[in-house]
């Protein structure tokens, strides 16, 4: 005979539970206040400002979606900076992941001086970006750069790595790839988690080095590849320091990336409303890329040997 469960009785919190709840809230109140004041409020405020004509000085005037419409239709820079940024992210991030993964595999093998190599590869990640930018400036500059200095002494024409509109973006991508030390470290940790038994089984099955890499290493590292991909996309979309210091967005706005232009709108041209709208568009773009990656991850990311 089936016995139905008695309906759950709703009851209020006891005095002790209420007191505990209050105490719990009090304990987390420093974080809660900080979150409300320094995260949620600015977020909400920027959403409001994005729908206003605001210059930091005068009272904001509500103009609805006009900033968004203007950005997509008449703004002279929006599509240029969008193209520049998508170029940088679209080429830089996958290349960066691939290079970092390959380097991690090399560093995971039994080679002499492995610890030294690991340190050397990681150093770019802890060097302040401004310092790194200045070093690269004096490596790549067309007049005074080290590479072009060598070319000059050989009587060859110099290469305008950073001062030609065609070469500036690829040069910045090269520098981006150079600074993949953090991704390398994460990949290294992931590689050391791949069970030795799987390689042994593959060897017994006659798999060569490439087959072992492609069919064992890569699949088992896909969760970390996904992680690095998402983190890389989020960071690359917001890259500011490198182009700002190195090229100032030039030549001819060829390295004017999205966040550099956002900054220029906010603090040089006093268009806080428009800059806020740009920030929200960027948020939606990053969200879109992240969702696409997560949605497609079921097809290529393996967790514990299963898709």
């Amino acid at each position: 005979m089936a016995v139905s469960a008695p309906p759950a009785q709703r009851r209020g919190m006891t005095k002790t539970e209420k007191r505990n709840q209050v105490m719990g809230l009090l304990f987390i109140s420093p974080w809660l206040i900080g979150f409300l004041l320094f995260a949620l409020f600015p977020l909400a405020a920027s959403l409001y400002y994005s729908m206003t004509n605001y210059d930091f000085i005068r009272e904001p005037q509500f103009i609805g979606a006009a900033n968004y419409v203007r950005l997509f239709t008449t703004d002279p820079d929006f599509w240029t900076v969008m193209y520049n940024t998508l170029y940088y992210v679209g080429i830089g991030v996958p290349l960066g992941i691939a290079v970092a993964f390959l380097i991690a595999n090399l560093l995971n093998s039994e080679i002499k001086g492995r610890t030294l190599f690991r340190s050397v590869i990681y150093i770019p990640s802890i060097v302040p970006t401004v310092c790194a930018a200045m070093v690269w400036l004096f490596i790549l500059n067309v007049q005074y750069g080290a590479i072009n200095g060598i070319l000059k002494t050989m009587g060859l024409a110099t290469i305008p790595f950073l001062s030609s509109p065609e070469l500036a973006k690829p040069s910045l991508i090269m520098i981006y790839i150079w600074a993949q030390g953090t991704a390398v470290v994460i990949f290294l940790a992931s590689l050391q988690d791949v069970p030795r038994s799987l390689y042994d089984a593959a060897l017994v099955d006659g798999a060569n080095a490439w087959n072992r890499f492609w069919n064992v290493t890569v699949p088992l590292c896909t969760p970390v590849i996904l992680f690095n991909f998402i983190m890389g996309i989020i960071a690359a979309f917001q890259d500011f320091t490198l182009p700002f210091v190195l090229t100032g967005g030039g030549p001819m706005k060829s390295t004017e990336f999205y966040v550099v232009n956002l900054y220029r709108n906010a603090f040089v041209q006093f268009s806080i409303g428009k800059a806020s709208a740009m920030a929200w568009i960027l948020f939606l773009i990053i969200l879109l890329f992240s969702v696409i990656l997560f949605r497609t991850s079921a097809r290529w990311v393996y967790y514990g040997g299963e898709k």
């Binding site: 500059n141 005074y144 305008p160 001062s163 030609s164 030039g250």
Partner: peptide, 15 residues
């Protein structure tokens, strides 16, 4: 040469 000029300005600090 435009590229040479752009390089010069980058060394000067872009501005």
């Amino acid at each position: 040469g435009p590229d040479q000029f752009a390089g010069m300005r980058q060394v000067e600090g872009n501005g």
